[in-house]
Design a protein around this nucleic acid. Structure first.
Lengths: 208, 208
DNA sequence: TTATTATATGACCACATGGTCATATTGTCA
DNA sequence: TGACAATATGACCATGTGGTCATATAATAA
């Protein structure tokens, strides 16, 4: 955790440091990212940096945990209505929410994307200590739940389907970000819905 | 391309350098990978390195092109029998071949994995100049082909299915590598087949 | 005012990086 | 043997890194 001095900083200054760090860590891996760059971007001397943070890892974990916190907050609103939905509606909601998150918080989404690429084991494990990955188990729970209700065939392999949904979810986000990254919102919203429905149609009805 | 001096080297020495470079580039990004490390691993002085290669990028592109060449060679044998197969059989073959490749050439698979994570635009574009990515179009071709034959429903979105298959393919490879990375071959072969069939079953028959 | 504590600051450190280059060694012809 | 080219080599360079620390400044309390 950052030192108390950091949290005593005026909001403007603190936020400037945070956004400089987000910028740096969303475009480079942990080892490639540079503290010197973050310092000059946020216009603080090197010495001040170490007055605010224990070390590079301290800042990295803090920034990543901000992104995780925001994502959980963003999804939690949708999660309350989850029990009233069928599996297909649940998955649909999850996919759409994921795309929406990338749209609304592109910097945080970029941080997440960068984290999935991370090579440094120490940096990875320290972040995972903070935010336990719940998406994997979330899909599994949803599937087993739907099986119990008789919504989907019991012969379907839970692990296989969970893996499929997970990989699909991240693939969709990347694809949408690439294609509609900067376009206007009107055509976008419709295309997104159509595309997600195409995918769900494949998964639920097969392609035969 | 490496200089002539490099190709004039005795096989042993040349291969030692190559494998040291593979090791380095499969565990670190382009910028994180270190020439000093490669030199000391392969026991050649720094000066000799620059007698063999133009610069770091030269070596990087060369090593990646070796991996690409090997993968194409590995898949090409399977591709000849492709026309006689149904779409499901084609996909099945592709998935299984992919897993087999990761098993047989783990270093090359790791290189490919690392390349998908690469941040450095220059390094990325130089490699892509060498090996054009054909997997994306390959899936699309297969799907349209199967539609024409009436093998699968024409209403299925080609792009969506192609994206699904692609992301699934890489997800499978990662999953299998994680789970069976070092285990024995007996139970492995059977499990792999079952798992791939579970996935194909979902895609072709839906989960309802 | 003075004493004490919390910050701010940039010169500095040891180390690693990609890359160079003058020099030494070897191989190959005549 | 001598001459010329091909290689081998490691000290060296400028630059960047994460991190430290003595000192200067500001804020607070008596």
């Amino acid at each position: 955790m950052p030192k108390e001095t950091f949290f005593n900083l005026p909001d403007d200054k603190r936020n400037l440091i945070i956004s400089a760090a987000i910028e740096e860590f969303s475009g480079a891996s942990y080892n490639e990212a540079s503290i010197n760059q973050i310092c000059s971007k946020s216009k603080i001397p090197k010495g001040s940096f170490y007055q605010y943070f224990e070390d590079k890892l301290d800042l990295y974990v803090y920034i990543m945990s901000l992104a995780i916190k925001e994502k959980i907050k963003f999804f939690s609103s949708a999660l309350t209505e989850f029990n009233t939905l069928t599996l297909m509606e649940q998955i649909r909601l999850l996919f759409l929410k994921g795309i929406e998150f990338s749209r609304e918080y592109p910097q945080y989404a970029a941080l997440g994307e960068q984290f999935t690429k991370e090579n440094d084991e120490m940096a990875k494990s320290e972040v995972l200590k903070e935010g336990t990955k719940q998406s994997e188990t979330l899909f599994s729970q949803m599937i087993n739940n739907a099986k119990a209700k008789g919504e989907i065939n019991k012969d379907v392999d839970t692990l296989a389907l969970s893996l499929l949904l997970q990989s699909l979810n991240s693939a969709i986000n990347n694809y949408m970000q690439d294609k509609y990254g900067n376009s206007n919102y009107e055509t976008y919203q419709e295309d997104v819905n159509n595309f997600v429905d195409s995918l769900l149609n494949i998964i639920f009805n097969g392609i035969k």
